[in-house]
Computed example of a mutant assay.
Amino acid sequence: MFTELGEDDEVVVRLPCCTAAVPCIFNKSTLEAAFRTQGKCPSCGTAYGLPGPQPAGTMSAKLGAFDCEGHPGVGTIEIDYTFSHGIQLPQHPNPGMPYSGTHRKAYVPNDADGRRALRLLEAAFMQGQTFRIGKSVTTGEENTTVWCIHQKTRTDGGPTRHGYPDPEFLQRLQSECAAANVRGALEI
């Protein structure tokens, strides 16, 4: 990247994908607007791994002794997410404003599909795409940590209650992750 001044003395950014054939040089504001929507170079389409909207937090997984409905005898992987309260950063909707953290649990069966789902959720988490700061659909609270990628919060009850059985869960998870530009979403 370089910092020569462009139009109206705005910083100019030259992306690493820039070549003589395809000049990938932009005013900083133009590039920021483009990356907010798709994380790709507006000229050549090269994808860049940008930090997602997720606040700082932790993700851990452990084996559970019970089964997810529809997956008998395999046990469960329990995924635990923790986000502390904090102040919003530039990638959040209201930089400088406080936000509420959260503690959430999600479940996948301890079988081949569940382990694939876990790897995909780990990739999404590391890329900052699993949660975001926004308005809670459940409580109506603004500036709180909410899901970005839908997960199963129950081991039973079916899809309408965010539980199992749900034979399309892995396919939907892959689609949501692909839409969020999670690297490897369609390879798992």
Results as ranks from 00 to 15, higher is better:
2 F>T: 11
3 T>E: 15
8 D>T: 13
11 V>W: 11
23 P>L: 09
30 T>F: 11
31 L>P: 04
31 L>A: 07
36 R>D: 09
37 T>K: 12
37 T>A: 06
42 P>L: 12
42 P>V: 14
44 C>S: 02
50 L>E: 06
58 T>L: 10
59 M>L: 13
60 S>W: 03
61 A>G: 04
67 D>Q: 02
68 C>A: 06
69 E>N: 00
79 I>V: 12
79 I>S: 05
80 D>N: 11
81 Y>D: 00
81 Y>M: 04
82 T>W: 14
85 H>V: 01
86 G>W: 05
87 I>W: 08
89 L>T: 15
90 P>T: 01
98 P>D: 07
99 Y>L: 03
100 S>Y: 12
103 H>S: 15
105 K>L: 15
106 A>V: 07
109 P>G: 05
113 D>M: 03
118 L>A: 03
120 L>V: 07
120 L>D: 08
122 E>D: 13
126 M>R: 15
126 M>P: 01
126 M>K: 15
127 Q>R: 10
131 F>P: 01
137 V>P: 00
140 G>C: 01
149 I>N: 12
150 H>Q: 11
153 T>C: 12
153 T>N: 10
154 R>S: 13
156 D>N: 10
156 D>H: 09
158 G>E: 05
160 T>E: 14
161 R>L: 10
165 P>Q: 05
166 D>H: 01
167 P>S: 01
171 Q>W: 01
175 S>A: 15
180 A>M: 11
181 N>G: 00
184 G>A: 04
186 L>Y: 03
